[in-house]
Design a protein around this nucleic acid. Structure first.
Lengths: 143, 143
DNA sequence: CTGGATCCACACCGATACTG
DNA sequence: CAGTATCGGTGTGGATCCAG
């Protein structure tokens, strides 16, 4: 019997719930890469949700042409943005969020707002964990 | 001047908004790995948000001991779950969501529900894109 | 201006074997 | 039972160069 918990279908078995790797993983993996969120953020605040390649490149610190191209291609492939090519000289290309791409922003905001609220605590936890780890190692090999 | 758009602080410059890579990226990257969401999902539906190592291992198809251990260590390091060790023979270890870990579930659900609604469309877009790509290549090299 | 092609370094993940 | 240690294949990102 299939049920749903926090937005995720699962099947109840005698050994407990059983999830299979599926959409949430792949999408989060896609969004979680180094540049995708930054590209989406820029398009989100742009007039008409639309920016040209060079503007994105200039606005995202540290991104290379290659990675920006790859990131945009993947987003285009998923139908989250569209590519407008103008065969001028020099050529000009603009990228625009699709309706589906824009519809993701509220959900994304819900998530990122949680992160903003809890991020300091996560950082503290990491430091505390690492220091405890360090002390344990010092204990094992005192000199 | 610092503003916030869809949960993300940014600074308005003469060249447009400027984001720096920060928390959302790292957290989504962490959650987007192959196993983290699955582990969180299992703990989410477990009584007391608490499960032992072997139960998780048995419930998540395909995960190795190594990857489950690493995934749990990272979540523990971030303060999203706690590890309860019982020095019995044989040893027993239980993992339990922290308050912070549980507080992430609603936000995660908002996001995954968007994914569930739009996933079929994303898949369609990918197929369409790949096929268009294929046709374009065939065009370039007809024989 | 946009972005394809190539090369390389590195991180990651799986498989396997071993331990308290 | 719940890990750790080690090794190797693979994919991904960065740097650089080239092209329409």
């Amino acid at each position: 019997m299939e049920r749903v918990i926090h937005g995720r279908p699962y099947i109840e078995t005698k050994d407990g719930p059983r999830f299979k790797p599926c959409a949430p993983n792949s999408v989060l993996a896609r969004l979680g890469d180094k540049w995708t969120i930054l590209v989406m953020s820029h398009l989100a605040v742009a007039p008409g949700h639309r920016l040209r390649f060079s503007t994105l490149k200039g606005g995202i610190e540290g991104i290379t042409q290659r990675m920006l191209t790859l990131t945009l291609r993947n987003l285009e492939r998923d139908g989250l943005l569209v590519r407008h090519y103008f065969p001028e000289v020099p050529p000009r290309v603009e990228y625009e969020l699709t309706e589906m791409g824009a519809s993701m922003l509220p959900a994304l905001e819900g998530f990122t707002s949680w992160i903003r609220e809890n991020w300091p605590r996560i950082v503290d936890c990491r430091h505390a964990y690492d220091e405890a780890q360090q002390r344990a190692e010092d204990q094992d090999a005192p000199v």
